[in-house]
Structures are given as structure tokens and as C-alpha cells.
């Protein structure tokens, strides 16, 4: 492509984008600064932009807390089940829907789409999950949201663009559709699979909603809910007589906990990043 002149638009746009990025960096930076300050440093600093003190106390507090460690374990299990289970089921549904000769295809398609926009409400869902004995088990953390219709559609659109010859060759060789899905389709669709995987992993790692609604046993709380509780309970503790000496989690503790909660995602992110833009593109554009 020919090199264009730098226009006023380019300059203005560049400035706007840079400003935006700067603004977005501020909360992120503040989080880091606060997590590593001492109490004195925190209280003395007004804007929390320039680090004036340094301490890793809250981090050692966090890592020695069995509750936090347990929460991480639960979150890990939740992520594995939600990601693998979700991916497999979405892929199966997506692939099945690409087969044009299935009876009732349109009906099934509508059946699935409808659930994206209408649901029974959270109370009926709770009651139902209770009836089938899922509440208070680890299953309630991922089963209710296992299949995302949106990702299913994304995968379907991407599978459609795979050349039919590949499948036909495999069929001739005697493979059935399930084997084709796992041996051919999925490996070929790396970008979109990576994209959906990232979305799923992020979703289940951060999730607290399912636990908050359906999980009453504190020893099965995922990290997301523990984080939420730490922050919320601080608000609750403030309006009760805390009694001399009882310790409120400090602001630094909250920030450190947040950082730890975000860490796995941020670590994963650079590896997956190159895939998912391409993945989303393939999935979304071909309609």
C-alpha cells in the first residue's frame, strides 16, 4: 500500500487514543501502587500515583491464608470443568448444526437461540437446581452456564468455512462425525478455539455469580466470591461494632487480592492474544 501523508486526523486520533490508554492505565497503576504500600504510605498519599513506600506484607498474608489457597483450587477446578466441558459441548452443538440435512434443523436452531434472550429468572433456577441436588456441590459453579449459545454460534460460523472435502475424505475413510470433530475440525480451527477458550477461562476464573447464588458452603467458595466477600464484608463490618482490635482488611490487602485474582489471566493473555483476534474474525465475519 502507498504511504499516506500524516494528516491532521492521524495526529488528533493518535492523541485521543494515547490519552485513552493513559486514562485506563491510571486505575491499573493505582492498584499496583496501593498493593505494595505500607499503611502509613497509603494514608499519607492522596492520589496514590507515586509509590512512596514498599511492603509485601499483604502478599505474604494472602499466601498464608488457607482460605485463599482453597479458593484458588476451587476456581482452578471450576475453570477446567467449565472450559473443557463448555468447549466440547459447544463444539459438538456447533458442528452438528453445520450439517444441513438434519431433520428439524431450523427448529433446533430456534430452540437454542431463544435461550439467549429469555430465561426463567434466578429464583426458579435456584429452586430447580436445588430439586436436582446440584446446589452446594461443585457442579453448581459451572453446570448452569456450561453452554454459551453465543460461543456455539461463533464456532458454528467458523466450522462452516472448513472445506467440505476434508470431512468427506474422513467419512470415506470410515470415521464418524464425532471423531471427525475431535480429530480434524477442532485442530484446524485453532484460532477460534483459542478465542473461545480464552473467553471461557476468563469467565470461569472470575466468576462469583454462580457461587453467590447457588453455593452455601463456604469451603467450596471460588476465588472470585472470596474476593467479593472481602470487599463487601469490609463494608458490612464498618457498620457493626468491630470491637477493639478486630482487624479490617486494609485497602492494600484488597488490592493485592485483586492483583492475584487477575494474575493468571494476564499471564495467559500474551500467549493467546495472537490467536483470538484472528479467531473472532473467522467466527464472526462469515455469516
Amino acid at each position: 500500500m502507498k504511504v499516506r501523508k500524516v494528516t491532521l486526523f492521524d495526529v488528533v486520533s493518535g492523541i485521543v487514543l494515547a490519552l485513552l490508554a493513559l486514562v485506563l492505565l491510571v486505575p491499573f497503576w493505582q492498584m499496583i501502587v496501593v498493593a505494595f504500600s505500607t499503611t502509613e504510605g497509603y494514608v499519607k498519599s492522596t492520589y496514590h500515583l507515586i509509590p512512596t513506600s514498599f511492603s509485601v506484607d499483604v502478599f505474604s498474608q494472602l499466601f498464608s491464608s488457607s482460605e485463599i489457597m482453597k479458593g484458588m483450587l476451587i476456581s482452578l477446578i471450576n475453570v477446567l470443568c467449565g472450559w473443557l466441558g463448555g468447549l466440547i459441548l459447544c463444539a459438538m452443538g456447533a458442528y452438528a448444526l453445520t450439517k444441513k440435512n438434519i431433520i428439524g434443523r431450523k427448529f433446533i436452531f430456534n430452540f437454542i437461540i431463544f435461550t439467549m434472550f429469555f430465561n426463567g429468572g434466578i429464583i426458579p433456577l435456584y429452586i430447580w437446581l436445588k430439586k436436582i441436588y446440584i446446589t452446594d456441590t461443585i457442579f453448581c459453579l459451572f453446570l448452569p452456564t456450561l453452554i454459551s449459545t453465543f460461543y456455539l454460534l461463533l464456532l458454528k460460523n467458523s466450522f462452516i468455512s472448513i472445506p467440505a472435502e476434508m470431512e468427506e475424505a474422513a467419512l470415506i475413510d470410515g470415521y464418524n462425525e464425532m471423531q471427525i470433530l475431535f480429530k480434524i475440525i477442532i485442530p484446524v480451527s485453532k484460532p477460534v478455539i483459542a478465542a473461545v477458550s480464552l473467553f471461557l477461562i476468563v469467565q470461569y476464573w472470575n466468576d462469583y455469580y454462580n457461587a453467590m447464588m447457588f453455593m452455601n458452603k463456604p469451603d467450596l467458595y471460588p476465588l472470585g466470591l472470596i474476593l467479593r466477600n472481602v470487599i463487601i464484608s469490609k463494608q458490612a463490618l464498618l457498620r457493626t461494632p468491630v470491637a477493639a482490635g478486630a482487624v479490617l482488611p486494609s485497602e492494600q490487602y484488597n488490592m493485592a487480592l485483586t492483583m492475584i485474582a487477575m494474575l493468571p489471566i494476564l499471564v495467559l493473555y500474551p500467549f493467546v492474544q495472537k490467536y483470538f483476534v484472528a479467531g473472532v474474525m473467522i467466527g464472526a465475519v462469515k455469516e
Binding site: 429464583i123 458452603k217 463456604p218 463494608q235
Partner: peptide, 19 residues
């Protein structure tokens, strides 16, 4: 032990009693 986050507690108990 069973519990719920502080701000959801009333709601949770209400739901639990109702279910």
C-alpha cells in the same frame, strides 16, 4: 456451616426458607 455473602444474606435466607 452454611453461609452467604453479607449483602446477599437476607435474600439467601428468604430463598432458602422458601425452598
Amino acid at each position: 456451616f452454611l453461609t452467604a455473602p453479607g449483602d446477599q444474606f437476607a435474600q439467601k435466607v428468604n430463598t432458602m426458607m422458601a425452598t
